[in-house]
Write a protein that binds this DNA or RNA. Sequence first.
RNA 1: GGGGGUGUAGCUCAGUCGGUUAGAGCGCUGGCCUGUCACGCCAGAGGCCGCGGGUUCGAGUCCCGUCACUCCCGCCA
Length: 615
Amino acid sequence: MHRYRTHRCGELTKSHVASTARLSGWVHRKRDHGQLLFIDLRDHTGLTQIVLQPEQPFFAEAEALKLESVVTVTGKVVARTAETINPDLPTGEIELVAGALEIDSVADTLPLQVNAERDYPEETRLTYRFLDLRREKMQRQIRLRSAITSSIRRRMTDLGFTEIQTPILTASSPEGARDFLVPSRLHPGRFYALPQAPQQYKQLLMMSGFDRYFQIAPCFRDEDARADRSPGEFYQLDLEMAFATQEDVFAAVEPVMHGIFEEFSDWAVTPMPFPHIAYKDAIRRFGTDKPDLRNPIEMQDVSEAFRDSGFKIFAGILAKNPKHAVWAIPAPKGGSRAFCDRMNAWAQGEGQPGLGYIFFKDGEGSGPLAKNIGPERTAMIREQLGLEDGDAVFFVAGDPASFYKFAGSARDKVGHDLDLVEKDVYRFCWIVDFPMFEWDEEAKAVGFSHNPFSMPQGGMEALETKDPLEILAYQYDIVCNGVELSSGAIRNHRPDIMEKAFAIAGYDKQILEERFGGMWRALHYGAPPHGGIAPGLDRIVMLLAKTENLREVIAFPMNQQAQELLLGAPAPVTEKQLNELHLQLSLTAREKLKAEAAPRTAEPAADELRANLLS
RNA sequence: GGGGGUGUAGCUCAGUCGGUUAGAGCGCUGGCCUGUCACGCCAGAGGCCGCGGGUUCGAGUCCCGUCACUCCCGCCA
């Protein structure tokens, strides 16, 4: 008989009755009747009820067992009587009558309960992550992540993609987010950077003739956290294809995404092909480049209804600048003064002057705004938006470039508050035709708006003849339920076009050679046209697990302050380590205090242990 | 860097208008219980009310500061 187990805790059924079995696992719950003790024994497969009788020599020891202790039980599998069958448990028709009990490991009093589905503060959960992970929900979510990852690998391999690892210690790149830097011991004063994405390497692989590459790639960016953005590190399904057009990339990725979402959820998924929405249309219709298409509301430009109207504020705004506009956010079934006033109060809380509105009842428009512009213009708006009695409409005026974000969040709020958002469905779309360049207000100059290696639409001719801010790129995002899952592009494989594009963004050829040396060289020795994309794995799993927080689908996440509470990262290092790396710290008194205060870990002893290991 | 929320027993939370000895559930300790499965019953221990200062006869409660966690803004080619 195996030292620890002949079966798993979720395995025994009526067919095993009368056989001898050995189970190992955690004490999930105890029910002590004095002269009879039940223990629910748990492992990754489920629960089995163990029955312990008082004549057994280990009975007292078993009674004293703390929850979450680890034990090995050997005994006879017995059928339960009809009255004692537990229909809620897969193993509920049998129980194991203990003949021997071995205590493998005892547990202290628990800081969080494993056997209860209740919420604990993040800090407690992360400090005791090993306990948190034992809970059923976390087991389910981490296993879901594993299954999704396997499925992605299989699908990509079936499509002829080759999985290739790329370096973790690489070079800092001048564009993008803040880098994590790793000081070099052998090269004083020089630093490696952790990759923000394997962008250049995957393009080099295309130039190396691998045709189709993919990787479940770790990416590192030193940004502040959000609920849907881990601090520091995350994973992407990174892929790249040679001799591919934008449509080829869509045709490869769409079935993978669609297939994954069909495989791991019973919610409806947007049928293929996913709709394509141009960036500027997404902004105009939804106020964001990552629209939640479950929300049916679409905004419209209603400037003409307000131009030279009796509503002097909007008329004035429109007269001031030809770029200015008035956008309407329809609110079906939102036609009550209470709702409109609530929206107005919300807008003021968002730092807006307010939110103009009209609501429709008894065949006409109500509210101060309708009075100001008169019945004809009110009817025009109603006509354009197809509104009926009982509906409302909100207005935002000014320069769309500055108000579209607010308009987008107003659309979100109307959709949610009026319960218009579709349920139990994944709504996908592609956002295409991103601008190649954008105006950097801080630098007062033109810069790359997304990926500097994207191919401008129209190629060299566009760069030479068009206003840079008008040029579009072969740059695209895939969006699901308002979550940006990935962005990608057809790359610029022509050194002459790249030189010109970088010149427009203010980088001269020398920078290109210095900072992108490897790729710049490779482009001169036969580079295939290529492109790719990189869907974020954490966000895919988060959507499929139906949670709102990335930390729910990461085994050992950092907290919002980018600290890992189990091992205590980031941690101070010794003088010796600093010296080897040719580093000196330059900290203010206040920063020194903070640096010396060791991060909290689960066991105070861990801090001591770490100090010993480091010295 | 900025704004919001939270901080009370091991854990989750309640705590009224500032007023006597700060409560509940789970967990923990002791006792009882041979069919429970969120077992039940009885008893008990456990509190720097995050920390510092202030107002007050009196502060968990009000004010100021500070720290921690969390959500958001900035940031995220």
